[in-house]
Amino acid sequence: MKSVDITGSSVSQIIARYARENNCSIDDLRYEVIDKGTSGFLGFGRRPATVRIIIEGIEKRIRTYIEQLMQKLQVNCSAVKCTIDRKTVYVEIEHPDDPGFLIGKNGSMLETLQFMVNRVFEHTREIERIYLDTENYRKRREKTYLTPFIPLIKQVKTSGKALTLDPLPAPERRIIHHYIESDSSLRTLTVGEGENKRIVIFSAKQNEKDVIKKIAPDTSQPKDRLNRKRRPGPPRKPANKTSAAKKKDV
């Protein structure tokens, strides 16, 4: 538990200032008064006050924030569990009385709340990301998301050939990376830039550099094919029109 000593003209003034500077309410602060200080008599014998403020661990801070948030959302839950894995925090809201509201349509509410919590703790150096989950919703969803990929992943295992997946958005890539991490015989890496980031799954026996070299020529080609696949509507129509117009001209 870390702490800081702050000196100021009075105890209440120090606490109020600290609370204001650190975005927290006075009731949430834990502190010890080291020296009450005196204003002295006619300026004689004046002594500043010193307060030791105990800085709570990030886990506790996230937990109190989420507990307050739940209370304000009028959702009762039995407990808020926090687990920290390196710089990622997993928060589990246990047994909410209204899980449907908390999760929202397709998990939209959970996603929004997670976004807000991440914004609040954005500038904290100890952590990088916070994930919210309730009633194992996220885990269940990850499982259903992974099912179409499992045969593909098995194929890599049996054939030993590296497999390049289609470009996926970051949260979906994370699910796959996370899943492969649990399998010691396989490894993943990411190729491409921006919207075209793709996951490559390969056997742990292979060298990462060799894999990149092997797939480098193919990645440039399917990229175009995929771009076309992703937006079938608008780009095709004008193409057809112009070709039709050209035919007429001829």
Binding site: L73, Q74, G104, S108, M109, T112, L113, F115, M116, R119
Partner: peptide, 14 residues
């Protein structure tokens, strides 16, 4: 406007 939208989503839902 992502944060503003997030605030609106939460307020709307509640």
């Amino acid at each position: 406007g992502r944060t503003a939208n997030a605030i609106r989503t939460i307020i709307n839902a509640v």
